[in-house]
């Protein structure tokens, strides 16, 4: 037996896991409540990580996520353009007693809404105790979002790594690049109209990026979401 192998065997006899690769503990996840998305993301939105939900249908996924998360966790929604509709959220099943809604850009503050949203998200992360922090940047212009330095996204991803919190950004296009553990791209495949009544949409979800497993990348699914009155 060569000397190196002998040395290894001797060490392993005393410390069996000395040369075994370190296994990452399973990341807890929050279900979105949409079966198609949950199976696509292998259990929902990961906690201790930054995720991005983009495209048309992002708000629907967010409200469903809030409804699921608020059953077990305190949630915060940082609304950069005050576009959250409480009526739809209530109908989706969100528990408002566990939801902190921060409406940016509503008072005469000097900071632009995007900066307000980032600052508030940072404060909430520092505060800890929230299971889900969602930052809705869906109505913020692409030009402004592209100017957000990569270091900001990187900082968020590092801070959230050590907390039992799912940090979710809603945007038209993904911007966090490698800082995001999960990027979910949504699009409206078709609208269901019965007579002249809009009854729902068929949404198409595509996992653009995930750090979990290689084969899960670029997986896609379609699912039907109804309107409140359908």
């Amino acid at each position: 037996m060569p000397a190196l192998a002998l040395l290894r065997a001797q060490i392993e006899s005393r410390i069996p896991s000395a040369f075994a690769p370190m296994r990452r503990p399973e990341t807890p996840r929050i279900l979105t409540g949409i079966a198609g998305v949950d199976s696509l993301t292998e259990g929902g939105i990961p906690m201790q990580a930054l995720s991005e939900i983009c495209g048309s249908g992002k708000t629907t996924v967010l409200l469903s996520l809030l409804a699921q998360a608020s059953r077990q966790h305190y949630c915060a929604l940082v609304d950069a353009r005050d576009s959250f509709d409480p009526e739809t959220a209530k109908a989706a099943g969100a528990d408002f007693s566990r939801l902190l809604w921060v409406r940016c850009g509503k008072s005469r503050q000097k900071l632009p809404p995007l900066e307000q949203a980032f600052k508030v998200a940072d404060m909430l992360l520092q505060s800890s105790g929230f299971g889900l922090i969602a930052v809705d940047l869906g109505d913020i212009g692409e030009k402004a979002l592209r100017k957000v330095p990569l270091s900001s996204w990187f900082r968020f991803s590092r801070v959230v790594e050590n907390q039992p919190t799912a940090l979710v950004f809603l945007e038209r296009q993904p911007h966090a690049t490698s800082c995001a553990r999960l990027v979910l791209q949504l699009s409206t495949a078709s609208a269901n109209i019965a007579g002249n009544l809009l009854t729902g949409f068929t949404l198409h979800a595509d996992v653009v990026r995930t750090r979990e497993k290689k084969h899960a990348q670029s997986a896609a699914a379609s699912f039907l979401v109804k309107t409140q009155w359908a």
């Binding site: 608020s70 959220a89 528990d95």
Partner: peptide, 15 residues
């Protein structure tokens, strides 16, 4: 928190 548990069903959201 709220003690009533409502049935959850994904719904189209309005922005």
């Amino acid at each position: 928190g709220s003690t009533t548990v409502s049935a959850l069903a994904p719904m189209i959201a309005l922005r």
